[in-house]
Every structure is written in C-alpha cells, then in structure tokens.
Write a protein that binds this DNA or RNA. Structure first.
Length: 301
DNA sequence: TGACAGGGGGTGT
DNA sequence: ACACCCCCTGTC
C-alpha cells in the first residue's frame, strides 16, 4: 500500500515471558481486545490509543515488535505497560491453585497468559459492542467504527473514535457499522458522557465497587460489561465477569449447575480472591480450547 | 456454489 | 421470559 509507513526493524520485547502461539493468540485475540488482526503468517497488527504495532513470536517463544518509524519510540514506551503492566507472577501466586486442581490445570495450559491494560474509554466502547456477539463480529464492528469515524494515526491506520467524537455521530451512522441495537446504547452513552465531563476519568480511578456501580448507570452497561471494562481497561483484577461461557465452565468444573450469574459471581470473587479476574481469564481460555477440541472430535467422527 | 436456518461472551422491560 | 438487531457459521 502506498500510504503504508516505513516500519522499524523487529526488536525483542525485553522482559516478556516466553509464550506459545496459543497463549499469545489468547492474550491479544481471546476476547480482551478487539483490535488485533493476523497480518502475515504468525505476525499480528494491533492498535490501541495512539499506538500501532506489529507483534510476532519466534520459534523459541520470544516476543518481537515493530512499529511505524515515526512512532517507534512512543510505542516502545507504551507497549510493556499495555501487554505486561500487571505483576502477574504475584497475582497468580495469590490464587488458590494449591487447593484447586482445575485452576492449576488452567494455569498450566496457558503459561504467561495475563490481563491487558487497555485505554479505559475504548474498552468501554468495545464491550458495549459485545452483547450476544462473538469475537469475530465484535472485531468487525470496532474495525468499521475506526475506519469510518476514527482519526488517522499514521498511514491508513486509524484510532477508535473518542467518546467526544461519538457524541457527534448520528445513531443511524453508528447502526451502519453493523452495531444493531447496540447503536442506541453507544449513542446514548456518548450523549451522557458529553454532558458529564470528567465522569469517565473519575470512574476509572474509583475503587472497584464504586466504579462498577457508576458504569452500570450507563445505557447498555450491565454487570458483565462493567466487569470487563474494569478488568481489561482499568486494571481492576478483582473484577470477575460472568458470561455464558463462565456460567457453563463453573457448572461443569465446580458443580455449580443451576446457579444464577449473581451466585456464580459471588462464588468467583470469594473462591478466587483479590485477583479473581485473572483466574477468570485462565478458566475462560481453557474452556474455549476444550470446546474447540470437542468440536473437532465431533466433526471427524 | 449458493441459499437458509439457527444461534450468538447481554441488557432492559 | 422475551425483545432487541443482524452477521457468522454450519449444513444442505
């Protein structure tokens, strides 16, 4: 492409844990973030905030990155906090894996998996798009929003529209980005945020329970979306999002058949503790992989 | 190869 | 409990 910028050469990401391709894909494309796409074989292109980067894993499991030349040093400064900003070792050690064999199995299946630290506002936007949608479809919506309504960062790469920008977009144009009934939620949330300057920034820095209560005031934001936004976009590792996958996983692995989301949520926070959200991510990854294995067995038999 | 039904990581009433 | 939207996936 003629507008494609000049990219820096590949550099090792110092301090990154060794990853398998499976764990790497789960980290950036496993439902935490919706702006990573496979680029060439084994290489991924990602955009968050005002950062654009390519990532790849070598055969030994070391992560390497490359960024458009004009923003290389900026990306260099931002990438570590985005990918590995949490003290995952300490957080994992606090989880009850010593007495919970299923959790131990999940941790062993995805070594190095962690929680991203994404920009708060765009995490909210992504998860407002997520209701009853699978990752591929959410990525499609978010990609259209960036393409049609986001400011250019460099070359053809665009950031997501800010909430200020979203407030100026007619609901019908949002709808045209395949948002369906989510267009109204996003439109009304944008109008609310425009009418309450500073509300989002304050919410991001409130303690978990207060922040969650505030997010749940927004149209289209219930407990599940609020927990995802706080976990992936505000570093609140105690948030324990309960979706249909986790309901199924907890029923199957912890014998919680028939439990309501509220009951599962209480169990999760009590059983897993201060970093329950990290445990959730491992359970989630494990269950998705198990479902995929079971599908492939069914299709070949 | 193209059409078609079924279902989807949730929220609001 | 059901509507809200409509794209994706699997299947014929």
């Amino acid at each position: 492409m003629s507008s494609d910028p000049c990219w820096s050469d590949w550099r090792p990401l110092l301090g990154a844990p060794l990853l398998t391709q499976g764990t790497f894909a789960e980290l950036i494309d496993g439902g935490q973030s919706f702006r990573w796409q496979q680029d060439t074989a084994g290489s991924w292109l990602g955009i968050w905030g005002d950062c654009v980067v390519r990532l790849k894993l070598d055969s030994a499991g070391n992560l390497h990155w490359s960024a458009p030349a004009p923003i290389t040093s900026h990306v260099d400064g931002m990438l570590p906090a985005y990918l590995f900003g949490h003290d995952t070792r300490t957080a994992i050690d606090s989880l009850p894996w010593r007495s919970d064999t299923h959790l131990a199995r999940c941790l062993a299946a995805f070594p190095g998996l962690t929680i991203l630290r994404q920009p708060f506002g765009e995490t909210l936007l992504g998860f407002l798009c997520s209701a009853t949608k699978q990752i591929v479809q959410i990525k499609q919506m978010v990609s259209l929003l960036a393409e049609r309504h986001g400011a250019t960062l460099i070359g053809a790469y665009r950031r997501l529209p800010t909430w200020g920008e979203l407030a100026l977009i007619p609901e019908a144009e949002l709808r045209a980005c395949l948002l369906g009934f989510r267009a109204r939620y996003i439109h009304q949330t944008a109008l609310f945020l425009a009418a309450h300057p500073g509300w989002l920034e304050e919410t991001e820095h409130l303690p978990y329970l207060e922040a969650k209560a505030r997010l749940c005031e927004l149209p289209g934001v219930g407990e599940k979306v609020a927990d995802c936004v706080l976990l992936f976009g505000a570093g609140k590792l105690e948030a324990f999002p309960v979706d249909t996958w986790i309901i199924k996983a907890m029923a199957r692995r912890y014998r919680l058949d028939g439990w309501t989301p509220a009951q599962v949520s209480h169990f999760g926070r009590t059983h897993f503790g201060a970093h329950a959200g990290l445990a959730q991510q491992y359970l989630f990854a494990y269950e998705r992989a198990a479902a995929q294995r079971e599908r492939s067995i069914n299709s070949t038999s």
